[in-house]
Design a protein around this nucleic acid. Structure first.
Length: 366
DNA sequence: GTCCGGTGCG
DNA sequence: CGCACCGGAC
């Protein structure tokens, strides 16, 4: 085990990150949820704004959902934001009025699974709770040269048990050097050092083995091919889709709609989007938009499109623009009651999906 | 183009 | 256990 070397390395090599300046469990929790599936660099400005807007669980619990979703706009996986607020409401309703401190209590909150429960319990409260995320999986499979897919039950169980042994060892056998940031103790230091190593040196490609504090104890390093670990399952095939976005402006207003609950980008606003066949041409896109809107073909102009990827889809967006002097009566507004004209200056405050925010930024200001 | 990554739900 | 959920890095 390389626990001591890891902790000593962490005390000197840890990146200074805004959420490392505090041990407030709420601040740690928010950072951990944002960091799920999302890179540190992306998270930093979101975390700063979030902590200003909602400095406590009570502030988050009391906020309008639309304000919460606006603060999350562009981060993706929007159920994380909804669950964060749901959990904040549960926390403020606790009879004790205190933040849950145990892994088991944390696990009861929506959006908190085994990783996040361990992260909060160890980082904020220095409990010997294990954590296993992508970084830790990489470090542990490399140190022990563990073959197999870490998602499968057998290896996954082994990795959790190693993570538990390491943090237990940290709890019983180590102290931590005083680092230049907030640290609750050696369990926190060990867990954070595993993640930090995975994020900065023990990276998926081109790992920085020469600088690694535990390379002498690493079986994958000795093997000469650390990148062979962990083994990964093939990713699901990407489905290509093609859609047309219809930007219709009338005076200072523009047509938007809200995405339904329960699917991609649930509850977020967007400009109307229509499905196209992959084979359809630009002219077909205009015909589709005209049929949907009741406008004439020649009222539309083609604007630069964009490509974006969400989950297993790669979506080519064509963009059409029309400026009308009379609002068209759009038939589908009966089936889609969220279809709404809003003043363009209100787009800034609306929660839009990332792709449509890019389109909104291309509109001329009034 | 290809790769990366926690939680919830069926 | 398989799949859905996002956006950005390379």
């Amino acid at each position: 085990m390389a626990v001591r070397a890891l902790i000593e390395w962490f005390a000197t090599a840890a990146r200074i990150l805004p959420w490392r300046a505090t041990l407030d469990p709420y601040a740690v929790w928010v950072s951990e949820i944002m960091l799920q599936q999302t890179q540190v660099k992306t998270v930093i400005p979101y975390w700063e704004r979030w902590m200003q807007l909602f400095p406590t669980p009570a502030a988050l619990a009391a906020a309008e959902e639309s304000v919460v979703l606006k603060a999350w706009e562009g981060l993706g996986y929007y159920s994380r934001a909804r669950n964060l607020q749901k959990a904040a409401r549960q926390i403020t309703e606790r009879p004790s009025g205190t933040f849950p401190t145990s892994r088991d209590e944390l696990l009861e909150l929506p959006g908190i699974g085994p990783y996040t429960a361990g992260a909060i319990a160890s980082i904020a409260f220095n409990q010997p709770a294990p954590i296993l995320d992508g970084n830790v999986i990489r470090v542990l499979t490399r140190v022990h040269a563990l073959r197999g897919n870490p998602v499968e039950r057998e290896l996954n169980k082994r990795l959790w048990s190693l993570a538990q042994e390491w943090v237990q060892h940290a709890a019983e056998r180590t102290r931590f050097p005083r680092p230049p940031f907030a640290l609750s103790g050696s369990c926190s230091a060990l867990n954070q050092s595993l993640m930090e190593l995975g994020a900065t040196l023990c990276t998926p490609r081109s790992p920085g083995c020469p600088d690694c504090p535990i390379r002498s104890q690493c079986a994958a390093h000795r093997s000469g091919n650390p990148e062979a670990f962990p083994e990964t399952a093939p990713r699901p095939v990407v489905t290509k889709l093609r859609r047309v976005v219809v930007l219709i402006e009338h005076r200072d207003s523009i047509l938007v709609r809200q995405r339904p609950e329960g699917g991609i980008n649930a509850g977020y606003w967007e400009f109307p989007e229509l499905e196209l066949e992959l084979s359809e041409s630009g002219a077909d896109a205009i015909a589709t938009a005209a049929r949907w809107s009741g406008l004439e073909l020649d009222q539309f102009s083609i604007r630069p499109g964009l490509v974006h990827s969400i989950t297993r889809y790669r979506i080519q967006l064509e963009v059409l623009h029309a400026r009308v002097t009379r609002k068209p009566a759009i038939r589908s507004s009966k089936e889609d009651p969220t279809l709404t004209w809003i003043p363009k200056h209100e787009l800034a405050a609306l929660h839009l999906t990332a792709a449509h925010r890019k389109l909104a930024l291309r509109l001329e200001p009034n």
